[in-house]
Design a protein around this nucleic acid. Structure first.
Length: 481
RNA sequence: GUCCCCAUCGUCUAGUGGCCUAGGACACCGGCUUUUCACGCCGGCAGCCGGGGUUCGACUCCCCGUGGGGACGCCA
């Protein structure tokens, strides 16, 4: 299943931006699934080589989100492993060592060009409708020239001396064979002037040192593969298998971004989209089994997943379908589980749910209306709080017929406690007959009195949840208004 | 602009030359159920980007267009 019969080792390598992007979650998930499917290892590595972008606390947030959603990694910054450290900013000496090898072999060179010169160069090239690339000014500096500039203390970067002739052909599990002309590949900066490596150097070095067998990442990396291959070959290392995943897209088909909606996994989780839902939904963006199945637990995905069923085309992140799936899960899981997961949403609102029997009934009823847990409160609070009536509601409540209904029901319900739903159904029929009020004129006032809304669960359910005492109390409240 | 990638209902997708009169799911529309809403059930609408080949036969293979996306940073 992989080269040399070695154990599969894959990694998810995000930069610590402060939240987990749904695109990142998809990459993480596919890596995870592939590792689990083949009994391999799933590694978390933090790519914090951009000092401007790193945010404090991001690491903790990331690791807890990953674990919370169920993607437990086998090696990583907080849990260690044999190939650490797993944070790139702690591996600077390693990159330095390998950069020196590149310098020695002539596959990299010092560049002293100022940012200003580079900007002007690019601008000029753009104007001439040429691809913006480094012009190689420092590519052929003599040893002495380099020495002099270094001694002068000039700031420098180290660039890859990429061949200008020929073409690079490589295989990708998703894209098949890809060919890129070497003349199109830039002399990539490997070490920035602050001494930190860029992605290209760091990820190649780390992937090799961490014995990564399959590089599974987003398609945005496809065009830099030649640089990576050149690096592997310069070091004399084996090139891993590349798997470039189709991009996740905004509704307008551009690369999924936070400008067009919520892309933070944490915020979905916070709103009570179940972890399993996020995973299940996102697995289907770019992957699909041969049959029509769409609902999978993480464990089932681990078994069903395979790289050869990954799609080539990008997929729009469609929140409508996410919502549908959310509702499916909320309705099909054990009510105890849903109730338990929803508990804190009620507590945050200050609702007293200490009566567990009632709480379970409430959740069981309210879950028909929602696709994420936080919305349950909206459909449940009427069972706990005093009802608020609009002007229109009051008018209906105050009508003579309404008052007759309330009186009748107060009296009827008061005869006993522990009414069963079937008995309530019977009582409804009976009261309609005796009062001579039917249809909307009967149901709307009583529903309003009990629930504060003309729409919602049926009356037997309402009374069953509220209990006889509270039901009578609510009817009396309306009668005295 | 250059290079690379991609292309089946509005969306996610099944389809690997005949099983396709193109299947499923979301959304949408209609019906049933319900006092109502929601859930649920049933049904419907809707697609192979275009043009050339190859072939007895193309959604499927090839070419050319077109369209979309990505990359072109001392960001990842």
């Amino acid at each position: 299943m992989h080269k040399d019969g070695n154990q599969v080792r894959v990694r998810f390598a995000p930069s610590p931006t402060g939240y987990l992007h749904v695109g990142g979650l998809r990459t993480a998930l596919f890596n995870y699934l592939f590792a689990r499917k083949h009994g391999g290892k799933f590694i978390l590595r933090i790519e914090d080589t951009d000092r401007k972008r790193s945010i404090s606390g991001a690491l903790e947030k990331l690791t807890s989100t990953l674990k919370g959603i169920g993607l437990q990694y086998d090696e990583g910054p907080d849990i260690g492993g044999n190939c650490g450290p797993y944070i790139q900013s702690q591996r600077l000496d390693i990159y330095k060592k390998y950069t020196q090898k590149l310098l020695d072999s002539g596959n990299a060179y010092y560049c002293f060009c100022s940012e200003e010169r580079l900007n002007n160069l690019r601008e000029e090239q753009r104007k001439r409708k040429r691809p913006p690339m480094y012009d190689g000014k420092c590519r052929d500096l003599s040893k002495d020239e380099v020495e002099d500039k270094l001694n002068e203390g000039l700031p420098f970067v180290i660039r890859l001396r990429y061949p200008r002739e020929g073409k690079t052909v490589f295989d990708d599990v998703v894209r098949d064979r890809v060919a890129i002309d070497n003349s199109m590949v830039d002399d990539q900066v490997l070490i920035k002037s602050d001494g930190f490596p860029t992605y290209h150097l760091a990820s190649v070095v780390d992937d090799h040192l961490m014995k990564i067998t399959h590089v599974i990442r987003g398609e945005e990396w496809l065009s830099s593969v030649p640089k990576h291959i050149f690096l592997y070959e310069s070091f004399g290392w084996e090139v891993p298998v590349f798997v470039h995943l189709p991009l996740l897209l905004n509704p307008d088909r551009s690369k999924l971004s936070k400008r067009q909606g919520d892309v933070s996994v944490e915020s979905y989780l916070k709103r009570g989209y179940l972890p399993g839902v996020m995973l299940n939904f996102i697995a289907l963006l770019g992957w699909h089994s041969a049959d029509d199945r769409e609902i999978y637990s993480l464990e089932e995905l681990e078994n069903a997943f395979s790289l050869d069923r990954i799609n080539k085309a990008g997929a729009i992140f469609d929140i409508e379908k996410l919502n549908w799936m959310g509702g499916q899960y909320i309705r099909s899981l054990d009510v105890e589980y849903i109730a338990d997961q929803s508990r804190h949403f009620f507590e945050e609102t200050g609702i007293d749910i200490s009566d567990n029997g009632k709480y379970l009934k409430v959740v069981n009823t309210a879950r028909d209306y929602v696709y994420c847990l936080s919305d349950i409160v909206e459909h449940a609070k009427m069972f706990y709080e005093d009802l608020i009536f609009s002007e229109e509601d009051r008018e209906l409540i105050g009508q003579e017929d309404s008052r007759r209904i309330f009186s009748y029901w107060i009296k009827a319900l008061g005869k006993k406690t522990g009414w069963k739903p079937e008995e309530i159904s019977l009582l409804i029929k009976q009261s309609i007959g005796e009062l001579g009020i039917k249809g909307k004129n009967f149901y709307f006032p009583i529903r309003l009195a009990l629930f504060g809304n003309c729409h919602g669960p049926d009356i037997p359910t309402l009374i069953n949840i509220l209990g006889t005492g509270e039901s009578i109390k609510r009817l009396e409240t309306c009668l005295t208004q």
